[in-house]
Design a protein around this nucleic acid. Structure first.
Lengths: 219, 219
DNA sequence: GCAGAACCGTAACGTACGGTACGGATACGG
DNA sequence: CCGTATCCGTACCGTACGTTACGGTTCTGC
């Protein structure tokens, strides 16, 4: 039984602090998030947790929503779209996304949602998808389509082109991190991977002068 | 405390049947795998479970190893490597891998390993990585390198080329399935995606006549 | 046929945790 | 200063599950 409205955006500062405590516990102690531990960590009583969030499921759902509301980055503007601006937008998007999915918070939250999806028919996975994978699609696809209208890239299906870009950027990073691989992405590696993936994407879908030389897509 | 040796390959038929029961439970009931449920499903006593596998962790580890030992598919031969044979090997590899990662057993097992990686410092994730991601790397990379020696593809770093191929094939499929997205991959879609990803890869890394036309990489 | 081992089914135990109840403390309106 | 509301800390309850123990049954070697 989920609490009626608490998962939305009307959260007091105290409640937001509680959700941050849940996130911290997820990161440092894994899925071992018990109500007692949350109460102790947030210095609040269990009674308050139940009053504010209904039950454990409501607390976790609110936590996922809370984190999702914090990640919303700005849109990528589509004005002055020449080849360089498109490439820059794609690189910035890719670097930002790589930074997000390799952050400890994202890893812990995805692990939690996946484990809960397996254990019960929970909706945490759907929330993660809606605020992660699908939300970024709605933000990037307009950029791709603007690029197509400007004659810089060519594709029939925006969704397919977007998924190809996601694959080139993410590769096997996420699954390896989720399974505990010590794959450390430093800022400079993220920047390099973002540029490589973008140039590979433009090599596949770009028209004429947007496609980079072969040397830029290898390493 | 893990049992000394039971996780290896010296398993009786009875024990293998028990592990298959665990797999079946994981698939149909998610991570809700309790010792009582396993005992009932496998028609054995809990005492036997503890004698054979030590404790719950040993049982789960043995299950992961058991499934891994069943997935080993044949190698892709590197003889008679012309452009068509290389493309065919890559497509067959990609289709097989897509079929594996979208199978209910793989999804359930990865969910379980990821959840356990989050909850404790368990080694299930490492086992999955060693038998999944890294094992297929060791099987496909020789094919890529043979293609390079035959002058069909060009790259500096085999690992980077391999990861690019993985990204083009898998895209966001695995994370979406793990999070519960109802992304159904029928055999014909798998075949089409495998061909598309292979042609995209050859377009990026191929030399001369191996690179397909633009129309083959779009949709 | 028999002793002993292996095993099944089930009962029992201890613990961990979700959820609830309650006493005491603090803040606030009147 | 008093009544009320909110909240903290903690004790408590019921249940689920990992683990152990035990009686009864089947299998195996001699």
């Amino acid at each position: 039984m989920t609490h009626p409205d608490t998962a939305g955006e009307t959260l007091t500062a105290r409640q937001r602090a509680v959700l941050d405590a849940v996130l911290a516990l997820m990161v440092e102690r894994g899925g071992d998030v018990t109500m007692t531990a949350v109460a102790r960590r947030a210095s609040c009583s269990k009674e308050s947790l139940y009053k504010w969030f209904g039950d454990r499921d409501g607390l976790l759902t609110a936590t996922v929503r809370w984190q999702a509301s914090k990640v919303r980055a700005g849109n990528y503007d589509r004005t002055r779209l020449d080849a360089l601006a498109l490439r820059d937008s794609l690189i910035r998007f890719a670097a930002n996304w790589l930074a997000v999915i390799s952050s400890p918070t994202s890893i812990a939250l995805n692990r939690f949602a996946i484990g809960e999806t397996g254990a019960r028919g929970g909706n945490l996975g759907a929330i993660m998808l809606a605020n992660g994978r699908f939300a970024i699609g709605e933000r990037l696809k307009p950029v791709l389509e603007a690029g197509r209208e400007a004659g810089l890239v060519a594709f029939d299906d925006t969704e397919i082109a977007f998924r190809t870009f996601l694959g080139l950027v993410g590769r096997d990073v996420q699954i390896r991190l989720l399974l505990g691989d010590a794959l450390s992405l430093r800022a400079e590696e993220i920047e390099r991977d973002a540029a490589r993936a973008t140039d590979q994407f433009l090599s596949l879908y770009g028209t004429g002068r947007t496609a980079p030389g072969r040397d830029k897509i290898n390493a």
